[in-house]
Design a protein around this nucleic acid. Sequence first.
DNA 1: GATATTATCTGACTAAGGTCAGCTAATGCT
DNA 2: AGCATTAGCTGACCTTAGTCAGATAATATC
Lengths: 290, 290
Amino acid sequence: MLDPVSRVRRFNRAVTSAVGALDTSFLGRGRPLGAARVLNAIGHGRSDVAEIRDYLGLDSGLMSRLLRSLEDEGMVETHAHDDDARRRVAKLTRAGRREFAAYEALSNAQAEGFLAHHSQREALLAAMDMIASALTRERVALAEMDPQCEEARYCLGEYYAELGRRFKQGFDVSLSRDPDAKDMRRPRGAFIVATSDTLPIGCVGLKGTDHGYAEIKRLWVAPAARGLRLGRRLMDAAEDTARGLGIALLRLDTNSALPEAGQLYRTTGWREIPRFNDDPYPDLFFEKRL
Amino acid sequence: MLDPVSRVRRFNRAVTSAVGALDTSFLGRGRPLGAARVLNAIGHGRSDVAEIRDYLGLDSGLMSRLLRSLEDEGMVETHAHDDDARRRVAKLTRAGRREFAAYEALSNAQAEGFLAHHSQREALLAAMDMIASALTRERVALAEMDPQCEEARYCLGEYYAELGRRFKQGFDVSLSRDPDAKDMRRPRGAFIVATSDTLPIGCVGLKGTDHGYAEIKRLWVAPAARGLRLGRRLMDAAEDTARGLGIALLRLDTNSALPEAGQLYRTTGWREIPRFNDDPYPDLFFEKRL
DNA sequence: GATATTATCTGACTAAGGTCAGCTAATGCT
DNA sequence: AGCATTAGCTGACCTTAGTCAGATAATATC
């Protein structure tokens, strides 16, 4: 009853019936689930027939028939691909977009229903984020992004908020040596964001300098994604990027109030060095030769 | 991307594919899912055909055929019920028990796989408990249990641990006026446990005294189940039980370090009264006339 | 004892999902 | 130009899940 495996299995049971309920509500629109899935895949922007087939794991014959039935219903139109007339591209008709919106409304309603009447929404959402991250761990994607894009700004905002909570004296970005966005763009540096199924869950910045080394900045992992060794993956990616840019020496600063960060650096080949800047927040300094 | 509904839907997507993976692994044993479910239901102790049918939501014709196919495979034997020869009782054969064990092993392996390589197991399990409780909120069952049964002891252990964390001075059961188990058994009192799909998630004790009133003791709600208004449900059940036992006056003590408890009492008809015992831990005392 | 109710089973039927071999037309390669 | 490959389509077929109307036998009710 109380061992970890039983708890996971209890969770599985609870979730299985919830998933079944959503499927049932989808059936309410009078269309088999297979066709509804295809329609939704197209609505979410997947247009290439092969891409949809791959995403939904369908046999090509079945896919073809489902697409045909949606065409007969007037929900979908297909055209030959511009570059390759063998390939087909599907798009929603006006009626199809209306139908897709109805499915979206159902999904949203069930999500809202789940949150409704729960007085600890934020805790519940954090739990869901954590589980979704754990379940899709092997599908976490790292990608270089502009340090001023929406995803990056979200990560940095969360990062600053967390420093504010964890530093006794709080954290004020304007007092810190805020890296210039242009120093974290190629070819001087880079900014890497980890996303799990559209949700940003971590980031790291590689900041170019004019002093013969680059700096690692803004390493952050969302609370929901801790325990997945994402920090290590981000650092590996940042170091690889640095190597690719021909950078031979990396430095970083951190604070002893973030022990898990120091621990990560120490176990991945970083060497503690004396203070190399006058930023008021850090009290620990590291260096790594690539 | 970051609004609550998107986060719930991301969770749904993650979980849907995980559930599908478990179903697929079940298919690996060469038996359709329907038959596998019946076999597992029997393995988990459901023997009455009608009970299984009801649990799995199957049509009686379908159920009959699935049971027949399991019999043909030699996994299951059915007999007429002792008291009513119309009813049938199913039990696993030796081969059926072996097959059931194989399914159990699959379920356990996938649960263990989920937990494996995750360095924050306890946080992950707590998140799963919370979500499972929220999903099965309307299926939380309150039942009177013996205050010394396994479920009750688990709840009390968690309750003491939580007091230890929340009281500045810690909590030592032996210093508190630990209610005698016999005072929380009928007809003097009762002990009520809330369970969600086998997991105990809350409790409350009704302790009989010889002073013309009964006391509410050991009200506890698991962290994973907070926000579901379970505390209120437990209190309602305890008060109903007290009424049923002919008790006209209830008292309780609590501590201002547990503000949510005080809040609950104040909004449900309890009236603050002066200290009525010499227990060192409580600093707030309430009374309610039924 | 007759009649109604029940628990389960059987046969007939349907929908949905899925597989597979072969077809057509476009494209890539030499 | 000729051949192989690729993307998608079609027809034939199968399994699973599910529904529904009786049939059968045991039990409950009057």
